[in-house]
Design a binder for these strands. Structure first.
Lengths: 188, 188
DNA sequence: AAATGCATGTAACGCGTTACATGATTTT
DNA sequence: AAAATCATGTAACGCGTTACATGCATTT
């Protein structure tokens, strides 16, 4: 799309991507996101509903009202040819460098201001969080291999999972190494 | 500090942390940040100047005007006892889980919508970016070891650098692995 | 009777970046 | 003569989250 200087948001394209896997309501997309791109992407309703309306006004999706007895109406969105084109163009564009900000590293960086046990504590915490994540990834992998066996997207889905594994593994290793070093330094 | 539900920003504490290493103006702090926490934290003037004023109104820093012939006046901020206390309290508090969002992974996840060469291209790009970063980290390490030899904070500064290395290394490994797998899958 | 799930949406808020405004000095 | 550096700030904007509002159905 256009967009002056800084502007740009991946959110509309995340939604188009999810819709490329099948029509759905805003509510659906939220749940679908949690069960797939959830490890590295999240959307809130405050983003989803307005964005779907904008996508519709641009002709990138269509919307149909599905009334169902007893339950609330659903607004089911479907991606259009134009939407599919827009998605593909975005996918082809070089992703922006991701500026990363870490409060953990900030705390660690100023670690000499506090008792070393505090920094060690932070490190131990993230270490165990990342170990939990690694276990979680194992479960997710088995789950999607079973549920979507043979799907064309599978290699790509597994690739994003693998990223998570490498990332978590690296953090665990770093935490171990850093805990050892800080301990050794304090003992001196 | 307090702060209802969602609120919280590490920015004031990043500035307090930088001021704990010595007094400085907003301009100074920006440059100081770039040369130290720059790899994992950044602040813009739009954040720095208003935040310094707020810190001052809370008594966490003091401000003195330094006039210098020829050059513009400087507003030099100094951390107070109360500021130092606030910083230490923040450092001791458990850092929040960091929600990470990646446009790269989003593009890769929907990779089956486009030519595989596009995903491979993205992977190659990040791979070489991270390799560049690794080289950069080497230079930075030599630099700070020389310039600040013996400093109390050194082990902590090196720890954050090490994080960057582990992270970059992991991304390179992942990219290599993923490039191989996608290639193998396409050939089948 | 209360809580949870389904389903859609809006309003308010906070954070952070970018762009702009100003103005003198020094470097190219 | 033009550009970069020093130095401080404000205004506008965009993104994203949280909280709120509504209302019916099902589960506890």
């Amino acid at each position: 799309m256009q967009s002056r200087p800084g502007r740009s948001s991946a959110t509309p394209f995340a939604l188009l991507g999810l819709l490329s896997q099948g029509p759905g309501s805003g509510y659906d997309l939220k749940r679908r996101a949690e069960g797939s791109v959830g490890h590295f992407w999240s959307e809130s309703y405050g983003q989803i509903y307005p964005t779907l309306k904008r996508l519709r006004s641009k002709g990138l999706v269509t919307c149909a009202v599905k009334a169902r007895a007893g339950k609330p109406d659903r607004l089911v969105y479907t991606i259009t040819r134009a939407g599919s084109k827009a998605l593909k163009d975005w996918l082809a564009a070089t992703p922006p460098g991701e500026p990363f900000r870490s409060a953990l590293l900030l705390k660690l960086f100023f670690g000499d201001q506090v008792d070393p046990a505090i920094s060690s504590g932070h490190l131990s915490s993230v270490r165990s969080e990342e170990l939990d994540r690694l276990k979680h990834y194992d479960r997710v992998e088995q789950d999607i291999r079973r549920r979507y066996a043979g799907a064309r997207g599978m290699p790509y889905w597994l690739a994003t999972l693998s990223y998570g594994r490498h990332r978590s593994r690296a953090i665990v290793d770093w935490a171990d190494e850093t805990l050892r070093r800080l301990e050794a330094g304090a003992k001196k």
